[in-house]
């Protein structure tokens, strides 16, 4: 464990969180290794979203520590602080800027990466931001969206909105990418496209935490899976181990299923 310590991007130890009388998370221990895709699965109401929001300091943990690159995220940071530390996030419903063009959507996160949380560049013209424009365009070409770059992002299909949102995260080269059910509510075709893209991202060596319902997605992407049930991690391991784990079958898949 001591040799692997340096490779751990996000280190969660002994985190508890309760809402009123309800224990949402109990004694969560989770180590996210660099370059790995770590999936968190579990039935509805298991506390997956709570865990994700606590991980990034959006919800304040009652006890325990969450270490990200030397920062203790239990202090309760603002979302923009979290992002500036190097964590980008994809939401269940794609969060993009529908009134801006696709190109502008991808350029804005690049500004955040370059300029920080605030910069008053009133007199600089967007036309002179050639570097960022080129970078955004390059990324859009990879996603086969370059032709539509002057269209409003709001006109995209759901699958393409997700791809755009991923592009907006990728241009920041985050140290950690959080994906909250990236294929939720998507048609099969869009889901497959998204999986292909996520595999591509995985190959680039980006560290990811993914919350997902769709087992097909989880088993095609994850290096490691943690199973969450009723606020506690009941199993952890590689996909093959998890597939056969009796506790997981009982809690997640139902007793007679698969």
């Amino acid at each position: 464990m001591s040799t692997a310590q340096s490779n751990i991007v996000l280190d969660i130890t002994g985190v508890n969180k309760s809402f009123g009388g309800l224990q949402a998370l109990s004694d969560i221990n989770l180590q996210i290794e660099e370059g790995k895709t770590h999936a968190i699965i579990g039935p509805n109401g298991a506390g997956k979203s709570t865990l994700l929001n606590t991980c990034i300091g959006l919800l304040k943990a009652d006890s325990g520590t969450i270490n990200f690159g030397g920062n203790d995220l239990t202090h309760g940071f603002q979302p923009h602080d979290i992002n500036q530390m190097g964590i980008s996030r994809v939401f269940q419903t794609p969060q993009i800027f529908p009134d801006l063009t696709i190109l502008q959507n991808v350029m804005i996160p690049a500004f955040a990466k370059r300029d920080g949380a605030f910069k008053l560049n009133l007199f600089k013209s967007l036309r002179d931001e050639k570097e960022i424009e080129a970078e955004a365009l390059h990324l859009l070409e990879d996603l086969a969206m370059a032709d539509q770059r002057f269209n409003n992002a709001g006109s995209l299909s759901r699958g393409n909105k997700r791809r755009l949102e991923l592009a907006m995260c990728l241009i920041q080269h985050p140290k950690l990418l959080l994906l909250d059910e990236p294929t939720a509510g998507m048609a099969r075709h869009d889901t497959n496209q998204t999986i292909d893209l996520l595999i591509k991202i995985k190959e680039s060596g980006m560290t990811k935490v993914i919350i997902e319902h769709d087992m097909h997605v989880v088993f095609s992407l994850a290096d490691k899976i943690s199973v969450l049930a009723q606020g506690a991690i009941i199993a952890e391991g590689e996909p093959d181990e998890i597939k056969g784990h009796p506790k997981v079958r009982e809690a997640y898949l139902g007793s007679a299923e698969v």
């Binding site: 603002q78 979302p79 923009h80 939401f91 529908p98």
Partner: peptide, 17 residues
């Protein structure tokens, strides 16, 4: 304009609105 369109995304993109 981005803040007007989606303040949540703006925050998670790393901007202090």
């Amino acid at each position: 304009v981005a803040i007007k369109t989606n303040q949540t995304r703006m925050e998670y993109t790393g901007f202090n609105h």
